[in-house]
């Protein structure tokens, strides 16, 4: 590890910290200062006014705004994200973390992995090969990328789930109280995941494919590839050389989409009744559960910052051209 790299790391790390702090301030601004009274939806409007006052006091919403901000900072420092307005008495951390986050991370990581592998390899192949198959695949995937994900979800659920009966309609499991061996439990879980996974893969694959394909087909014409060809390297070896560029493209997209890993897919999770963070986000919006929304927002910021930081390190190793200069992105 060179000194240059160490400097780069520290530099980036401080940037990440600053961004996270700015994000946390933004969250406070969004949730407390924007028009719209966060207390207005606090609990059932039919409860007597005295009881409301009591609750507002308990949530610290009656204090002046700067005191609220100090309280907010202090609470965050202690890892306290507040309490849900809807699930009365449940801390936000408990609402988000646990089952919901697990479901989302499993679903999203498999979807992103599947589509990254599928999209990158196809893109690499087609970009390198060119010609008719390339045109066919590229136009098909552009078409796929144009279909709204919620619409595709509806159709897949209806045809695969209902008409053909291949996948379960909704939920994450069929066993709620039975004692079943672990492998059956896991298989059942995976079976429930097939529908959402197909939808998400159809959504993500074009992203990787199109980007990688363009990068590769650009590189194909560059001097060093032509030189390699002239030296008489086999196509396969040239492909391996080029795949480095494809990998950079893939890492870039993964870094850009990484936040979805924890926030999940709102449409897909809602349609397939997948009990994840995406659906929680939607439910919380409908019920105006501001503390939970804020929690999800903060979580997103932390994950995005971490992912960007990680991607920066990866770039350093993947692309010798990019040093401290910065990164090339879309």
């Amino acid at each position: 590890m060179s000194r240059e790299f160490a400097y780069y790391l520290v530099h980036r790390f401080f940037q990440v910290i600053v961004i996270v702090i700015l994000g946390f301030i933004a969250a406070f601004v969004i949730f407390r200062l924007l028009p719209g009274d966060p207390t207005i939806s606090l609990l059932d409007p039919r409860i007597p006014p005295e009881a409301r006052e009591e609750l507002i006091k308990r949530f610290g919403l009656d204090k002046p705004i700067y005191e609220q901000f100090l309280l907010y900072v202090a609470n965050l420092a202690r890892g306290d994200f507040g309490y849900s307005f809807v699930y009365i008495g449940t801390p936000v951390v408990e609402v988000i973390f646990g089952e919901r986050l697990f479901n989302t991370v499993v679903l999203m990581s498999s979807a992103m992995l599947t589509s990254a592998i599928l999209g990158t390899s196809l893109g690499l192949l087609m970009g390198f090969r060119g010609g008719f198959p390339d045109k066919l695949f590229t136009s098909t995937l552009y078409l796929l990328a144009s279909a709204p994900v919620f619409w595709v979800g509806l159709l897949i659920q209806f045809y695969l789930g209902y008409r053909l009966g291949l996948i379960p309609i909704a939920g994450t499991t069929s066993f709620y109280f039975e004692e079943v061996p672990l492998h059956i439990l896991v298989l059942d879980y995976v079976h429930h995941m097939v529908g959402p996974l197909i939808v998400l893969t159809m959504f993500f694959t074009p992203l990787y494919y199109i980007y990688v394909r363009n990068v590769v087909s650009n590189v194909r014409g560059e001097d060093f590839v032509l030189t390699l060809k002239a030296i008489g390297l086999s196509d396969l070896r040239i492909l391996l050389r080029i795949s480095r560029f494809a990998l950079i493209a893939t890492v870039t997209i993964i870094a850009n989409e990484s936040a979805l890993l924890v926030v999940g897919a709102v449409f897909t999770e809602t349609i397939f009744g997948w009990n994840g963070v995406g659906r929680l986000l939607y439910d919380s919006i409908l019920k105006a559960d501001y503390p939970v929304l804020q929690g999800i927002f903060l979580l997103t910021i932390v994950v995005v910052a971490t992912a960007n930081f990680t991607a920066d390190i990866l770039y350093y190793f993947l692309d010798p051209r990019i040093k401290v200069r910065g990164l090339a992105r879309r």
């Binding site: 940037q15 961004i19 994000g23 969004i30 949730f31 924007l34 028009p35 719209g36 870094a255 850009n256 989409e257 990484s258 936040a259 979805l260 926030v263 709102v266 986000l281 939607y282 919006i285 105006a288 929304l293 999800i296 927002f297 997103t300 910021i301 995005v304 910052a305 992912a307 960007n308 992105r329």
Partner: peptide
């Protein structure tokens, strides 16, 4: 840097939250 960061926050999430508030 701000643009980079905003680009990697899922726009749907921010949009949903903002619409819910506004």
């Amino acid at each position: 840097r701000i643009v980079d960061f905003l680009l990697s926050i899922p726009s749907l999430v921010v949009a949903l939250i903002l619409v819910a508030i506004l």
